[in-house]
Amino acid sequence: MLNSGISVLFEGVNLERLLLGLLVTLRVALIAVVISIVMGILIGIIRTSKSKLVQILFKLYLELFRIIPILVWLFVIYYVIPANFDLNLSAEVVALIVFSLWGAAEMSDIVRGAIISLPKHQTESSKALGLSVSQMYRYVLIPQATKRCIPPMINLITRMIKTTALLTMIGVVEVIKVGQQIIEVNNLEHPTISFWIYGFVFFLYFVICFPLSRFSRKLERKWAT
């Protein structure tokens, strides 16, 4: 009985469809991660500024993405904006925008935290040595901050990959949606199909996220000394 479901995976192009779904998941997640890292580092550095205006503006941005659930952002940009303004974006573009903005907000907080956690004498010593501001960041602050950033950054990346599951709600056909399509077509004939398909989807996510999490732990251990 249990093995009747697994055959469905190899029927027609089912396996290929699941992997293509995974590709959509990864494409959205990876592009968003790259944009987030670049924007996050810039915004993170800007946020160490002493200016109250800059601090409040970016704090507002970060809190907007922390407080409002990602699902709501997706709905607002996918359904509400086109209904009221003449701006029609495809589901994947909407996903990229929301995930990049969210990732950049979270990433900026990580970068800011890492920079301000550096002892004050690092800045003071660089200044005493006569380094310009850009030199100070380039040679002193960023290399040290990077060490402190990497573990939480990898944590954020795995969170972003997993959160792409929400994209089914705006009609992006990613790996979970493909799984549901296969389950609904086959569950009268194979009652255990959902176990196999969801099990396989679990396995796919695991294969992607587990190495990342191991990598992060390894780096942490290496730099702890």
């Binding site: 469905v8 027609g12 192009v13 549901q180 399509q181 389950i183 077509v185």
Partner: peptide
Amino acid sequence: FSDKPPFGYVDANG
């Protein structure tokens, strides 16, 4: 629909 057979679904060939 992509998951409501027999009204709207996606078959094994996509």
